[in-house]
């Protein structure tokens, strides 16, 4: 890649402290980069540290060690600038039920520093792009799940950020809505956005991501394009590649004892 990375993560560490378990290293020495026009996939089972990593990047959590930057802004030193360059979408983030779809988009564009003169035009374009014109003046609480999902993606990119984070975006969606989501994400890559995509669904990651990082117990086990990972392991399917690395890290017994039970192979 000729352009500098939009996201740089270096030796990132994040620990939580729990009365019963003591120190829990949710992220343990993670390093990767993500370039403009690239979808970087973080693949891992539940509890692997994907969401924690993305929350550190969105400045909601503070790292215990290492560093991370978005568009050159450090997540600890300049969190507001990081967030203004970032669109964060997660299955757990919600919309304000008492705002209309249009008000939602206006609010998120303005709050993220989009130039005031361009807000109206930007919102009009988003309404048209996502086909929510008919419902633009309807309160979010009255919208269907699919329509809410569209408003949610639209609000994520309302301020036209160069970096987008999608944390398990298809969780809870039916097949058609999930496919629609993946289509939009591909379009956004085409617009030059740097996209971090986390999932535990192999098929999604396999089809969507340009490069893949396999995350397990907070550590990055492997990183590369699907072809590079296939070449390194001699395996064809991402599911097999994933199991290969996890078994290597944990031992075969650990893998057999249900460690992989939380993984979905998808379609």
């Amino acid at each position: 890649m000729g352009v500098p990375p939009a996201v740089i993560v270096r030796d990132l560490r994040k620990s939580f402290f729990d009365e019963s378990r003591g120190e829990v290293k949710a992220v343990d020495g993670l390093s990767f980069t993500c370039y403009p026009g690239e979808i970087f996939g973080l693949l891992g089972a539940n509890g692997a540290g994907k969401t924690t990593t993305l929350r550190v990047l969105s400045t909601v959590l503070k790292p215990t060690g290492g560093s991370a930057s978005v568009m050159g802004f450090d997540v600890v030193e300049d969190p507001e600038a990081v967030r203004r360059n970032l669109g964060f979408y997660s299955a757990s983030t919600a919309l304000y039920p008492r705002l209309t779809a249009r008000e939602t988009l206006e609010f998120f564009a303005r709050i993220n520093g989009y130039p005031e003169a361009g807000v109206e035009g930007r919102v009009r374009a988003l309404v048209q792009r996502f086909g929510i014109g008919e419902y633009a003046h309807v309160r979010v609480e009255k919208l269907s799940t699919g329509m809410r999902q569209k408003v949610s993606i639209a609000r994520t990119i309302a301020h036209d950020p160069p970096v987008l984070i999608f944390d398990e975006p298809t969780v809870g969606l039916d097949v058609l809505n999930a496919l629609e989501m993946l289509k939009i994400i591909r379009e956004l890559r085409g617009e030059g956005k740097a996209i971090l995509y986390s999932s535990h669904i192999m098929s999604e990651v396999e089809k969507l991501c340009d490069r893949i990082g396999i995350l397990h117990r907070g550590r990055l086990l492997a990183l590369g394009t699907l072809a590079e990972l296939q070449e390194a392991t001699g395996l064809h399917y991402l599911e097999d590649i994933f199991v290969h690395y996890v078994v290597q890290a944990e031992g075969a017994a650990g893998a057999r004892m249900g460690m992989l039970g939380e993984l979905e192979t998808g379609t």
Binding site: N85, Y96, R110, G113, P115
Partner: peptide, 21 residues
């Protein structure tokens, strides 16, 4: 590379937040 967004003044952000609230 560092893209400094057009930062709105504090009072502007505050007004947007308050109005929406």
């Amino acid at each position: 590379m560092r893209r400094k967004p057009s930062f709105r003044s504090d009072s502007g952000t505050l007004a947007v937040l308050l109005r929406t609230e």
